[in-house]
Design a protein around this nucleic acid. Structure first.
Lengths: 412, 412
DNA sequence: CGCTATTTGTTCAGCGATTGAATTATTTGC
DNA sequence: GCAAATAATTCAATCGCTGAACAAATAGCG
């Protein structure tokens, strides 16, 4: 999701204003301090007159507000700083995962204004029932958002599986879902959002993708190209290139869990052999550490591992080192291929990062030709749990920033 | 290099025309038959009046020309078809490789209008001397181009190695180059091109990247996202995503030759272990087939292999099968990661495709989770040798199509 | 042959958005 | 208290798109 305007088709007279609205608003969103109209004029290359006109539209639409006297030095009339409004449009983020449901609301600024998590084992629950429960939570979220002056303009749902363009969940193995028509199931419930031109009412996407988007938009802003790895039962990755999520031809990119790291190794349930998941997936690590999986609820497995590693347990340390090495082989492949300089460990990996990072870095150092000239950073995610839900909500809010014209054109 | 306009900064009054010039010209370039002004209006969403005005500019700048009566059926005034001009701006492509120098000229249409290849072992030649020789060839190319009514507006140089943003060749191992400042060396020679706003005078890029661009712009147009693998002494890949080359954060993407396909395998000169290059590089295949490399000039090694395989030589067939399997493991990683549906085998691999494709496809089928739903195509490159030079020249010519305003604004 | 329907391409007044210069507003420094 | 400096607004001019009317050119039909 680039912040620079990029018209797809004809550039009409009115597109001009649309593009400049996006340009100016994007600048306000990414500035590290509230810019004045004059700042925006020099930053964008537009004239002050144009910026004033554009800002007037944005103020009228309540997308930005004027902040009180901005700190300045020197003579001259003081500038009025412009900031994104903390009221107005907001995004709804939804997440179905193996052991929890999550709902959150993120505003234009990117802040989480509402958050609900419902812990439960979702594997035995029918998809329709899980979604119904989610809608219920979302209803409460909307009411809470309204109390803060926020209007939900779109929703994004994160699922740990493969999703096609139409929102059909083709396969979510760890959840036991197959060919679940999410949009159709959700359409049976009363709509929770106010439709705005240019913002899809519902986007269904892979959990790893949305978590990566969350990382992209987190504060402080990080790099615009990176790999975000979600290490859960399965291992997924979100690839962010130049500030935009790369989804692949059919939206199924990031299947890093099935990169062959030991081509003649253990058979994987995907049909292949020696997939990363067999060596660095949650179950593999737990087993290698000598823990009995049945005694560990999924959401406590990584916590228990971290506990043992912290205490110096030899089995746990070895298991983590081996997993990190396997992960490092896969990451080295990605870095060689895409020339990324940042890798973020998210999901269950975030808590295990202190033990995973060293072997991953070692493999990168040994296997990446260009690592000698420019080092690769490997760090844990800054977002906590439910990162995908936050990323989902943020992706909706970002869309308003990227295409404000739709919101401004609404009748209200 | 997208054909849809995408302004980076301010959208000023004049940008409107710039964007629509690019939009209309891009449409003319990609249409499969010469479109009329009316066709363009419906295709772009602009009014016929605007299209007429835009086309008038393009005709005046000699970027397009009217083709004689286009075949039509039915009543009505006959349309006048519009085609890209076969005169006017053209791109200069240069290539330095291990055993040849190549120069070519490609016009707006994408056709190769001039081509010179100088075969010689470049390893013992100093970079400055190699480039001087290339400039000499380019001078002849420019004169030949001028006779066809073509003006060179930019140059691109393909090098088998890592190039940074400034055009510095950091490392070209098989050529023996290290830290060669190509732009500075070329600046000592008289300029060969006419500077046009928006078109860089010289771009230096990796051979695999430019070969991929050549494939992207080849006729008939193929997919807009694919992986192009150049199998020479080293193995490089160009990644094309949504019609644009993906260069990575520092321009060093595509180092597929060093993907670990056997993490504990043979040591590689990159410092890693079990890199693809050790199993599917030209030297590895030649050695596995029982051929003595010293007796084979580099440019005949693949031809000899193909000959033997054609004749049913067991050693050659086994060597190719093993190489294809290793290649397949790497390709499976890429496809899992990027969800591409097309893989093009270029360079030395093109001639060996009949024997490489089956094992590559077998590995993909076994290791790619999504292959069951949508098959992956693996095919040889349509461009012949010196694909990188052609791609280089084409990338310059394409830039004029993508940003015609610069050419139109020139004083001439 | 002449008329009509049809499609292509051009002309032109109107209009929206940006521009650049002039103007007003507000503060600091002397 | 006044000049300098910076911020923001106002306004006529201009650029380029729009929509509708108009001119051009052909096929079909009687």
């Amino acid at each position: 999701m680039s912040l620079t305007p990029a018209p797809a088709g004809a550039v009409r007279q009115g597109s001009l204003r649309e593009l400049n609205l996006a340009l100016v608003l994007g600048r306000i969103a990414t500035a590290d301090r509230p810019p004045s109209r004059a700042d925006l004029a020099t930053a964008t290359g537009l004239t002050r007159a144009t910026v004033s006109a554009v800002v007037e539209d944005l103020l009228a639409g309540r997308l930005v507000s004027e902040s009180d006297p901005a700190p300045r030095s020197g003579a001259g009339r003081p500038a009025r700083g412009l900031v994104l409004a903390d009221q107005g449009p907001a995004g709804l983020g939804l997440e179905v995962n193996v052991d929890y449901l999550a709902v959150c609301v993120v505003d234009l600024v990117g802040q989480v204004r509402h958050r609900t998590v419902h812990r439960a084992d979702l594997r035995p629950v029918a998809p329709a029932d899980a979604l119904a429960r989610l809608v219920e939570m979302a209803g409460a979220a909307r009411e809470d958002a309204a109390r803060h002056g926020l209007t939900l303009v779109g929703a994004a749902l994160a699922v740990p599986g493969l999703v096609d363009d139409a929102g059909l969940v083709r396969l979510a193995p760890n959840l036991g879902w197959r060919d679940v028509p999410v949009p159709a199931l959700l359409a049976e419930h009363p709509p929770l959002i106010e439709q705005v031109p240019g913002v899809p009412a519902l986007v269904v996407d892979n959990e790893a993708n949305l978590a990566a988007l969350g990382e992209l938009h987190s504060q402080p802003p990080g790099p615009s190209s990176f790999l975000h790895i979600s290490g859960e039962v399965g291992i997924g990755a979100g690839i962010v290139l130049d500030g935009a999520l790369f989804r692949g031809v059919r939206g199924w990119s990031g299947e890093i869990g099935h990169l062959p790291v030991r081509p003649d190794g253990r058979p994987c349930r995907c049909g292949g052999q020696g997939c990363l998941e067999q060596y660095a997936g949650q179950e593999a690590i737990v087993a290698a550490a000598g823990l009995v999986r049945a005694e560990l609820p999924a959401d406590t497995a990584t916590a228990r591992l971290a506990e043992l590693a912290e205490a110096g347990d030899a089995d746990a340390l070895r298991a983590l080192h081996d997993a990190g090495t396997a992960l490092g082989v896969a990451v080295a492949s990605v870095v060689n291929l895409l020339d990324l300089d940042t890798v973020v460990l998210g999901g269950g990996y975030a808590a295990l990062a202190p033990w995973l990072c060293p072997p991953v870095l070692a493999e990168i150092g040994a296997r990446v030709l260009t690592a000698a000239w420019s080092p690769v950073t490997v760090r844990p995610s800054t977002l906590g749990a439910e990162a995908a839900a936050v990323g989902a909500a943020g992706s909706v809010a970002r869309r308003i920033v990227a295409q404000p014209a739709g919101w401004l054109a609404r009748p209200g």
